[in-house]
């Protein structure tokens, strides 16, 4: 018998599943590898520097805050800080200066995560909170997007251009006809592969979908949130497109451009900040889809996924309070 020959006594159950937080986080990291690879291909050095800095600074802040401010044992290797780092990097342009990334990481880890008590306690997605902080603080740097391929060997000196969403927003505002605008943006095949300007992780729908498929198979996420977000976006933009194809872009464009797929698969599905029940998750996803479309089509910003997710994050406690799983033996009564 182990220690001091004493029997161990504990409450049941006495066996446990093999799942752990680490495994989940490492799976998420693995699922982000294809998207990261694509950004290396299109943005090269910049993508490497930005991602590296974001991950390292998130880990360092997590360690320092846990150790010296909260005075708890740092749980660095649960992988959650690394996930936040990669997601933050995925949400910024690849030519962002190092110090800004560090500031973003500090906001993400320090304010959005640790100040609420660390992993599992944060109401808002930390990476998105960091991203939004950067966006409103440094709007110029956060919206100067390096051109894909051309800026492969450049970092701060990358040549920049507008994202497809930016081109669309600006053009429609200036009254350019839709036909001309569609010529200015890459064709949909290239957009699907990721050959366009944008945040470094959001560009390739293909790579993101691959990662999403892996997460679905490994049961890290369920289909409810991604599917409800994407189908809401398709339905809403499709409806507007049918009403007025000259004023509104087609739904496929809205799917492929911007961060909606990244958001739907990797950001909105963050377990900590999404509802617990499948029905709640669908409500959450539909909300994100709607807010995203409203911002994109009628708002001042060309892109609205991160705002949409953060806004819906705030509704999660409410959704969880009112959307409960159906209990066994709740309604049905037989004679």
């Amino acid at each position: 018998m182990s220690p001091n020959n004493l029997l161990t006594v504990s409450h049941s159950p006495h066996v446990f599943g093999s799942e752990s937080v680490q495994k989940i986080m490492y799976r998420v990291l693995l699922a982000m590898v294809p998207a990261f690879a694509v950004s290396l291909i299109f943005f090269g050095v910049g993508a490497l520097i930005v991602t590296g800095v974001a991950v390292v600074s998130c880990l360092v802040f997590e360690y320092l805050i846990a150790r010296f401010l909260l005075k708890v044992k740092p749980t660095l290797w649960d992988g959650s800080a690394a996930v936040t780092g990669v997601l933050l990097a995925f949400n910024v342009p690849s030519n962002l200066p190092v110090w800004m990334i560090v500031v973003g990481s500090l906001v993400a880890i320090g304010i959005a995560k640790m100040s609420f008590g660390g992993l599992g306690k944060n109401p808002f997605n930390p990476a998105l909170a960091g991203r939004i902080f950067l966006l409103v603080s440094f709007p110029v740097q956060m919206t100067s997007w390096p051109k894909a391929v051309e800026s492969r060997f450049a970092y701060l000196d990358a040549t920049t251009g507008a994202t497809p969403l930016g081109i669309m927003k600006e053009g429609l505002k200036n009254g350019q006809p839709m036909v001309d605008l569609l010529k200015d943006i890459p064709d949909y095949g290239q957009m699907f592969l990721g050959n366009m300007s944008g945040s470094l992780g959001e560009i390739s729908a293909l790579a993101l979908l691959l990662g999403g498929l892996y997460l679905l198979i490994k049961k890290v996420i369920t289909w409810h949130i991604p599917v409800s977000i994407l189908s809401t976006v398709v339905l809403f933009t499709g409806l507007m497109w049918l009403i007025n194809p000259d004023k509104f872009a087609d739904p496929l464009f809205h799917l492929l451009a911007g961060g909606v797929i990244l958001g739907a698969i990797f950001m909105a599905t963050d377990m900590v900040t999404s509802p617990m029940t499948p029905v709640g998750q669908i409500i959450f996803g539909v909300g994100i889809g709607l807010i995203t479309c409203l911002i994109r089509l009628f708002g001042a910003y060309p892109e609205g996924v991160s705002f949409a997710i953060l806004i819906m994050n705030a509704f999660v406690p409410l959704i969880d309070k009112y959307v409960k799983p159906k209990r066994f033996g709740e309604v049905v009564k037989h004679g």
Binding site: P3, L6, L7, H11
Partner: peptide, 22 residues
Amino acid sequence: RRTNRYDSAMTCEIASGLYSGD
């Protein structure tokens, strides 16, 4: 004398709900 080793949530209330003690 300790007669066994307790390994569940570390509160007296939960331990006493399980058994007489270690």
